[in-house]
Design a protein around this nucleic acid. Structure first.
Lengths: 235, 235
DNA sequence: ACCTGAACACCGTTCAAGT
DNA sequence: ACCTGAACACCGTTCAAGT
């Protein structure tokens, strides 16, 4: 809950001078970046757009962040914090793991453009450590040893982040690209040659049935079934 | 094995005129794009660089592809073809699924810059259908019905592609970003406060043990264990 | 038929100059 | 102390003009 970003100035109740819109800070810059990403997608996050939205010259932002990558790392921490903040372990270790995975995915769904840009980056900050502590606690509770818990932790985190950002990448496509990719499951897979692809043809009608929510739950269910089967203590 | 790209000109044995380096074609353009990506990473693929490498004006490429995205879709088909070409089903349905997943991952490892750019796109072309046919064949063989096979197919493909491109995203980071992210597992996780993150601290020493190959095998093993447990017919 | 070159509307980053 | 403005070396795409 403590906040790693803040050289923030002390210009509090100053009524005169420029409008408050020009008082830059790391927080205000990250807020603006997030708004921009949500409204216009990952390629809209440029220093020049950011400067315009903040009412400043585009280079002013570089007084607060060392470059665009530094802004992304700040946003990455926000994303993971959104998933982890306020979370309490559930009644069983499995419920804890399931709910944390869902929260990570939900945060990525809420900010797909951000997820695409940062999901594979390690932020190495507070929220990430809190999440790791919770997951590993659940795995130790399940009866795994230290080495095994570390292994399962990385497997679960990798799959959750990988699938969430993979999904975000589709969510963020726009225009014809998106339409083309989305319809493929319903049209082109159905039309694939039954002579050349007989197995595919025999199940093609079902390919578009499950939505993305189902898919994610299904995969996590499979994974946690296997984890549970290998653990000493069923949840 | 048939090739969807080719308006190719018939300028075969013409000895005079410009050097052959100026004879553009979809194939030559894709070759050059792949070389560029492999040598210099995803952000190096620009029409201008491509034009320079091909010895042409950068806009000449637009006579063969409708835009940069069209080039990416052409490359996506090549990536999946590299994974699927020459593959034969294994002795058991599980061996078939494991080996196909490994091949997809290996192709993404061989071309990480390409994997980052296209893994979440659906190419809807020949190689993709061949891969789908093989996976679904294995699942039907495992005893699943049409609806279930479709569901498991999407789960397995999503996890394989998501993890492969997730991994590729790290492989492709360069300079300080990469060093920072890689060392995090060994340094910063080890140094995380044992008071605030006791569970994490108790296993931190093991977090850097497994390499990416182990991680992938481990996840696929978990997933296929669960698939096998739910199937009527063990492999 | 195929390619070029100029133009347009953009990028991130650096750095001297202003206030 | 903080921000601006010009400059630099880039982008993708369009389109009239060349050969």
């Amino acid at each position: 809950m403590t906040d790693p970003d803040s050289p923030a100035p002390r210009s509090v109740g100053a009524r005169r001078g420029r409008p408050p819109s020009n008082a830059l800070s790391r927080e205000r810059i990250l807020d603006a970046a997030l708004t921009l990403l949500e409204r216009e997608g990952p390629e809209a996050l440029t220093l020049r757009r950011l400067g315009a939205d903040l009412g400043s010259n585009h280079t002013a932002v570089l007084r607060y962040f060392s470059g665009k990558d530094d802004i992304l790392l700040g946003l990455a921490e926000r994303l993971i914090a959104e998933a982890v903040d306020g979370f309490e372990p559930g009644p069983t270790w499995r419920a804890t793991l399931t709910e944390l995975a869902r929260r990570v995915r939900r945060a990525c769904q809420a900010h797909p453009a951000l997820a695409v840009l940062v999901a594979s980056r390690v932020s190495r900050r507070d929220a990430e450590f809190r999440g790791a502590d919770l997951v590993i606690g659940a795995l130790l509770e399940a009866g795994f040893g230290a080495r095994e818990s570390a292994r399962y932790y990385r497997a679960l985190v990798d799959v959750t982040l990988a699938m969430s950002s993979f999904e975000a990448a589709s969510a963020v496509l726009d225009g014809p690209e998106r339409e083309g990719d989305r319809m493929a499951w319903q049209r082109e897979y159905l039309m694939a040659s039954p002579q050349r692809f007989p197995q595919l043809a025999s199940v093609a009608a079902h390919l578009a049935e499950a939505d993305e929510d189902d898919q994610f739950e299904f995969v996590m269910g499979l994974l946690l079934d296997a984890v549970e089967a290998r653990s000493g203590r069923p949840a």
